[in-house]
Design a protein around this nucleic acid. Structure first.
Lengths: 161, 161
DNA sequence: GTCATTTATATCGACGCCGATATATACGAT
DNA sequence: ATCGTATATATCGGCGTCGATATAAATGAC
């Protein structure tokens, strides 16, 4: 039982930030497993879903604008858009001003497939959050925003170093 | 601007659960990006880290016990352990009772590499959580636990259906 | 004891993502 | 106007995960 000893000695009581992070990890994994099936039934992956979501809610945009919004590098966005293109869910329009850019937008088919899917998705999330009161939800958003922002800042800072 | 219209109409104000989930997504992505470099510098991936973590803190265990703890399927655990084995960070001991099972444990080298890495990792997390008060942290854990548990239950329920 | 079933682990083929690079186009300095 | 640099997108090779399956060993019914 040496390892348990070491664990206790090293951490005393689990430092709170780490503990919270582990719980966040668990919650994240559970949510992901829970939400994924409804996408795969539709033949979509997680990234595809997020791309469609951003296109629906923010409107048409060039490939390079999608990447940051869905946390994907340019190459991955390119292939994701291509997958969706092959399924005729999105359209690529070449810009006349700048012949390098191709603006991506939802097709009618894309809209028809995605809007109901998104609605189901939203309902599933609501179900999973059913035990959380409005006040708790607000508090949760506040805290997660702080953490996300700080993590982003710190990540950028260490990039430069 | 049709899409914005549709968005507003469809969602009125963003339904709170969905909104919170999106913020969680962002926070998660930021944290992952922030934490990953310290692992890759050591030549490890996310899964490898979690396997080492569970071995350090829960002690030696057979391959099939690792999977559930790190949210990986048996095949993935097998190759993850193999990666770590090739780096001599873990050892596989064949059980005499049941000759199918191979109990995985950290080697000395594994411990030497991982313990400081884990300490750095913990420090990074603490930094990212610096803006969160102890009360907020407690509240965060509470709420995330509720969400995780409910999501897990719901996922299992829809499995059977 | 023998055979069917179950369990532990490893392997296989497919797929998605990443980092790096290639290609095409635009922009800016001179 | 030309040339070097920067930007948008696509492509390539490598890697990690998945689901399905293979292999080996244990268990249980008879």
């Amino acid at each position: 039982m040496v390892w348990i000893h070491i664990f206790m000695k090293e951490l005393k009581r689990p430092p709170e930030a780490l503990h919270a992070w582990l719980i966040m990890l668990k919650a994240w994994q559970s949510m992901s497993r829970y939400l994924l099936p409804s996408l795969t039934e539709e033949g979509l992956g997680d990234s595809d879903f997020r791309v469609l979501e951003v296109l629906l809610h923010k409107g048409p945009m060039p490939v390079n604008a999608i990447g940051p919004k869905v946390d994907l590098n340019p190459g991955s966005v390119s292939v994701a858009v291509d997958r969706l293109y092959k399924k005729e869910l999105v359209r690529r329009v070449e810009s006349t001003r700048d012949r390098r850019v191709r603006t991506v937008s939802l097709t009618e088919k894309g809209r028809e497939i995605f809007v109901p899917l998104f609605r189901r998705h939203t309902a599933l999330i609501k179900l999973a959050f059913q035990d959380v009161s409005p006040e708790e939800l607000q508090q949760l958003e506040l805290v997660l925003k702080k953490i996300g922002k700080r993590a982003k800042d710190l990540a950028e800072k260490s990039q430069h170093a």
